[in-house]
Amino acid sequence: MHIYRLISLVLFLLSSQLVTAQTFRIFDKPIIFNEERERLSLEYLEKRHGIIQETATINPKMVVVHWTAVPTLESTFDVFNPVHLGGRPELTTASNLNVSAQFLVDRDGTVFRLLPDTTFARHTIGLNYMAIGIENIGGPDAPLTKAQVKANAELIRYLHKKHGIEYVIGHHEYYDFQGSQLWKETDPNYLTQKIDPGDRFMKKLRKRLQPLNFKSKP
């Protein structure tokens, strides 16, 4: 009888270890990507990036990390989900395509995919055509969490393995690419000031990603 109890205990401990060591997971939570969003995306690629193509896709070589400055996952989703951008005149002058990102990370580190990895999203001026965006729930009044640092690192490692990512930058670092061969924005005066996700978060993230030697400048 004791041997059966011992076996049961061993099996219980093994199953507990598997639960606590769960593999990295992505949950699909798609935003609208209909014919109108694709039309606006293709228009953006042509007018803002000078790229003409038949499908609104990208060849990812960069990951840009953001924060949302919106307090919850669902409210952020409601911002990104509409096809058309509203209430931001500094952006609508360039295009009526709504802002979005391919991924959204909640404060507990849960990762949601809003768009397929290679689908175009408007999130970083001059670099959208080659960049996957990762948005993190938080902002100046809600500093990003340790769980988000870990989740971003795991997600970026996954994307690197899948796409051969070369660059990882914070949104506030995109200015460094102006004037480089990677920068594709047809209007040199079209810029917005960004502080997200900040040097502190990127330092923690880069420490976790250090073995992969990602570039942060052109």
Rank of each mutant, 00 (worst) to 15 (best):
H2I: 15
I3M: 12
Y4A: 12
Y4D: 15
I7S: 11
L9I: 07
F12E: 07
S15P: 00
T20Q: 15
A21L: 10
A21E: 11
R25S: 13
R25T: 06
R25P: 00
R25M: 05
P30T: 11
N34C: 05
E35V: 07
L40E: 11
L40A: 09
L42Q: 04
Y44R: 04
E46L: 08
E46M: 07
G50V: 10
I51F: 11
Q53P: 05
Q53V: 05
T55L: 08
T55P: 00
P60N: 03
M62G: 04
V63F: 09
V65S: 13
V65K: 11
H66E: 12
W67R: 03
A69S: 15
V70C: 00
T76K: 01
F77D: 02
D78N: 06
D78T: 01
F80R: 02
N81F: 03
G87S: 07
L91G: 04
L91I: 03
T93A: 12
N96S: 13
L97C: 07
S100P: 09
A101V: 06
Q102W: 08
F103V: 08
F103I: 07
D108M: 01
F112T: 05
L114P: 07
L115H: 05
L115K: 04
D117A: 14
T118A: 14
T119R: 11
T119A: 09
T119F: 06
F120E: 09
A121W: 02
A121R: 03
G126N: 02
L127Y: 02
Y129C: 09
G133D: 07
I134G: 13
P140H: 08
P143Y: 05
L144N: 11
L144K: 05
T145I: 05
T145D: 08
K146Q: 14
A147K: 07
A151N: 06
E154H: 10
Y158I: 00
L159C: 09
I165Y: 10
I165S: 08
I165A: 10
E166P: 00
Y167Q: 13
Y167R: 09
V168A: 12
G170W: 03
G170M: 04
E173W: 06
E173N: 13
E173D: 13
F177K: 12
F177C: 08
G179V: 04
G179T: 05
S180R: 07
W183G: 05
T192R: 08
T192M: 11
D196A: 15
P197N: 07
F201V: 01
K203E: 15
L205V: 08
L205C: 14
L205Q: 11
R206E: 10
R206A: 10
K207M: 13
L209H: 03
Q210N: 15
K215M: 15
